[in-house]
Write a protein that binds this DNA or RNA. Structure first.
Ligand code: MN
Ligand code: MN
Ligand code: ZN
Ligand code: ZN
Lengths: 130, 130
DNA sequence: ATGAATCTAGTAATGATTCCTATTATTTCA
DNA sequence: TGAAATAATAGGAATCATTACTAGATTCAT
């Protein structure tokens, strides 16, 4: 099914790409409503799903009840903060060794892929802990 | 809070330890009802939670909507089958290299830990694919 | 044995997500 | 350019895994 060009879809992807916070659908809904006050939550859900299928955004199925979304589709990893729950990026260049190892593992075990989530303290919470 | 010894709790952990299937709470509920027909689903949920907190079982928060539970608390990894959804064990001895690397990563990045889920075809589905 | 602590069954509530539908917007192509 | 066809929308209902509530039962420590 071809994706039409709608205002709703354009604003959703635009606003998501402005963020570094890996919002849930309902968090993004609040933000998008500043531009499109009449948009419905269902539209945000549906478009995030379609955009993820099309490879335009990432759908993150991490621990926690809610799915999160990421406008950055470049390869990187995620850490969940044990204190505040925020998702922080861990860029692949810091992790090239583990990335190589995981790819080797995928080959060796003849599996399709993997999902890796790191757990720890985000920068903000680490600073506050002093 | 100290855990009492109840029939319900004993049967839940016993039946879970007999399985290699990583059941959801409701799947285990069906099995436990063969021994205790009057048990409630809430009791299964509550006990699995308490037993996981006590380190007697593992709570697996993998992809998919439902949590799964594992009576085997020895270190090992899990693979979700893309065809049937089953969770299959990947024992740590097969994965000692990746295990070492992940532990190094945890040290290097000063994080607490990680969650790794492999994705692929389980043995049964791989056999059926020929 | 007894009082306090813990647990249970049954049921209601919660909350994230998906589904439904009448209406509106977008695309296609004659 | 202008229907007809296709796709998307808002708003609301439905789903369903999980958690919360509660009165009564069980288990525990002494
Ligand atoms: Mn990210
Ligand atoms: Mn296992
Ligand atoms: Zn934090
Ligand atoms: Zn399978």
């Amino acid at each position: 099914m071809k994706l039409s060009n709608t205002n709703q879809r354009r604003i959703i992807i635009e606003e998501l790409r402005n963020l570094y916070t890996h919002p849930t659908a309902d968090e993004l809904y609040v933000i998008v409503r500043e531009k499109l006050p009449q948009i419905s939550l269902g539209t945000v859900y549906r478009n995030l799903e379609l955009l993820a299928d099309a490879g335009k955004v990432l759908k993150l199925e991490l621990s926690g009840k809610q799915k999160r979304f990421d406008g950055n589709v470049n390869k990187h990893f995620h850490m969940r903060c044990r204190a505040c729950g925020r998702i922080e990026d861990m860029h692949a260049d810091k992790m090239s060794e583990i990335d190589r190892n995981l790819n080797d593992l995928v080959d060796k075990l003849k599996v399709d892929g993997y999902r890796l989530e790191l757990n720890g303290l985000c920068n903000k919470c680490r600073a506050e802990e002093e």
